[in-house]
């Protein structure tokens, strides 16, 4: 066991610990004032604003979809919901580049719906709605994959009891179903948020990567590296790393809460 412990620890420190350390080391190696001014670099601020906008739009939409789809799949099984169940997981097997390219082929000016959309003055690709669609597509299954097993495990008896007590379907959902799955929803929401904020490949394809307009934080980081401006790039990278570590910590807390509520 002792030998195994050393092997495992060494592997993880080299593979994960070293990069993680490097991100923060590089960010702060020129001192706090350099970090402070890098934080206020206007192009990065613009990209952060766009990233937050996308997150604010996509996360609730995907959460609603995930909850609705899970309920349909578990509580109203039919041929259609079986197909839905399979389809939701498809983005997990796809490369982010694949997702970006397929959206581009459907909605860009050269794509299937490009000219009808353009005729109505709608521009989806290479503007924020396209970025939102790409982010939504790659994070599509994250909420439902948390809820579906929980709904199956909960069973229907609580909901049916509420019905025998006179509760409407809506009331049953809000007073019985939703409270029972709140931790799973929170978990899925946070996963979605983290994925949307950190998505790179799919967004790269559909955004056009125009500074101050269609550049998200991940794209800004990459551009800084390509333009040999690593200090600025690492500032953005450190922010994203901090967000993801925070997300991990909160996810851990949620998991523990969920487990505790299960022991009820």
């Amino acid at each position: 066991m002792k030998r195994l412990r050393i092997i495992a620890a060494t592997y993880l420190v080299v593979l994960v610990g070293a990069p993680l350390y490097l991100v923060f080391h590089e960010t702060f190696k020129s001192g706090w004032s350099a970090f402070w001014s890098a934080l206020h670099e206007p192009q990065m601020l613009a990209s952060i604003k766009l990233t937050l906008l996308i997150a604010v739009v996509v996360t609730p939409l995907n959460a609603l979809f995930g909850i609705g789809a899970s309920l349909a799949i578990v509580r109203h099984p039919s041929r259609w919901t079986k197909a839905l169940d399979r389809l939701i997981d498809v983005p997990l097997a796809l490369s982010p580049i694949f997702v970006g390219v397929m959206l581009e082929l459907a909605y860009s000016a050269a794509g299937w719906f490009g000219s009808p959309l353009a005729a109505h003055g709608l521009r989806i690709m290479f503007s924020w709605p396209g970025i939102a669609m790409a982010s939504a597509a790659v994070s599509l299954p994250l909420v439902s994959r948390e809820i579906i097993p929980l709904l199956r495990e909960l069973g229907e008896t609580q909901e049916q009891t509420a019905a025998t007590l006179g509760a409407s379907a809506r009331r049953t959902f809000f007073t019985v179903t939703l409270p029972a799955m709140k931790w799973a929803v929170a978990y899925g929401l946070l996963l979605t948020l983290a994925r949307v904020i950190g998505e790179y490949g799919a967004v790269l394809v559909v955004s056009g990567n125009v500074a101050y307009q269609t550049q998200t934080l991940t794209l800004d980081i990459a551009e800084n590296f390509e333009n040999y401006n690593p200090a600025q790039g690492f500032t953005g990278a450190a922010m994203l790393a901090t967000v993801s570590i925070l997300a991990l910590i909160i996810l851990g807390i949620i998991k523990r809460r969920e487990r505790a509520s299960h022991e009820h």
Binding site: P19, V23, G198, G201, A241, S244
Partner: peptide, 17 residues
């Protein structure tokens, strides 16, 4: 605590690092 970091860390951050 460390094992899940690659799941959470954005790929671009991993890439540049």
């Amino acid at each position: 605590a460390v094992v899940d970091v690659p799941f959470a860390l954005p790929t671009v951050v991993a890439g540049v690092t």
